[in-house]
């Protein structure tokens, strides 16, 4: 799959942003006044910034409002609704903390659930896509959610949660990679089933429809960077998990947490780039590619 920078930026930023919002909603930590403003400003910057980035990959961003309509069937629609609901609830909750110094616990809990719900619905947009076997399994939401929660704990400065959650996130990410590497082969979809001609003999793509490239090949058969996948996976794990772990264990002052969070986000960005770049869409089979 083509790794669109806007979509990768969206999933990295809003994942961390909604993670932080969830922790704030749960009162981890309980902050008020100016400090609360700082936390909420960061969370909204990431969450809303990510959502705005995601509209850049739309062909017609001016029609984005229409996307809230089809929640009955569409995970993308559900994500939009969940995100707006989370942002509105958390804004009211945040206003209570910042301006009135009062914490409305119930509102915070609802906001936290909606925030996790947003990241879950994001992950389901990918998980539901049967044509990309690497995504079409439970390791995808497990990976998205565990990274969101770990990132939220890190940004919230809740080190005692961040350490085990980062380890859990690493396990979920590695699980997604290992499972994903076998997914296409195990899906049973091959050029033989794609053409229905498999029973007659070995099928080989002889000639593509056009000599040049097309939308399908650009969007779904992205092969650049796959050969560096292992190196990028190691880099992603180091930046996303190992460096933040080392930093928060070394010290828990603002500068250590901030550096750990930046390293974590760069690592997540790298892992998400791979999430797209390594994903094989079955339409590639028609072109004799994967």
């Amino acid at each position: 799959m083509h790794p669109a920078p806007s979509v990768i930026l969206f999933s990295t930023m809003s994942g961390a942003g909604f993670g932080l919002l969830a922790f704030l909603g749960l009162g981890l930590p309980v902050v008020t006044g100016g400090l609360a403003f700082g936390y909420f400003a960061l969370a909204y910057l990431l969450a809303v910034g990510g959502l705005i980035a995601s509209t850049f990959h739309l062909g017609h961003p001016e029609r984005a409002m229409k996307a809230f309509k089809q929640w009955r069937s569409s995970w993308l629609s559900r994500e939009g609704i969940c995100a707006v609901a989370a942002l509105v609830v958390m804004a009211i909750y945040g206003a209570g903390l910042v301006f009135f110094g009062t914490r409305i616990g119930l509102l915070g809990t609802i906001g936290a659930i909606l925030s996790f719900g947003t990241v879950f619905t994001t992950s389901m947009i990918y998980t539901q896509i049967k044509t990309v076997p690497r995504w079409n399994n439970t390791t995808t939401p497990a990976m998205f959610l565990s990274i969101c929660i770990a990132g939220g704990a890190l940004l919230a400065g809740e080190v005692k949660f961040a350490v085990p959650l980062l380890i859990l996130a690493a396990a979920a990410q590695i699980g997604h990679w290992l499972f994903g590497d076998r997914a296409l082969a195990e899906s049973g979809t091959t050029l033989a089933t794609a053409t229905g001609l498999g029973a007659r003999g070995e099928v080989r793509a002889f000639e593509p429809p056009h000599t040049g490239t097309n939308y399908l090949l650009n969007e779904f058969v992205y092969v650049i960077g796959r050969k560096h996948a292992l190196k990028l996976r190691i880099i992603a794990l180091i930046l996303m998990i190992a460096v933040p772990l080392a930093l928060v264990l070394l010290g828990q002052s603002f500068i250590f947490i901030a550096l750990a969070a930046i390293s974590h986000l760069v690592g997540v960005f790298t892992a998400r780039w791979l999430f797209f770049a390594q994903a094989e869409h079955v339409v590639g089979l028609y072109y004799g590619k994967r």
């Binding site: 799959m1 739309l58 062909g59 229409k66 896509i129 399908l216 969007e219 869409h281």
Partner: peptide, 12 residues
């Protein structure tokens, strides 16, 4: 159509 491309992703 907002041009999100998700339908093309879903089509095998």
């Amino acid at each position: 159509c907002i041009g999100c491309g998700l339908c093309a992703w879903a089509c095998p």
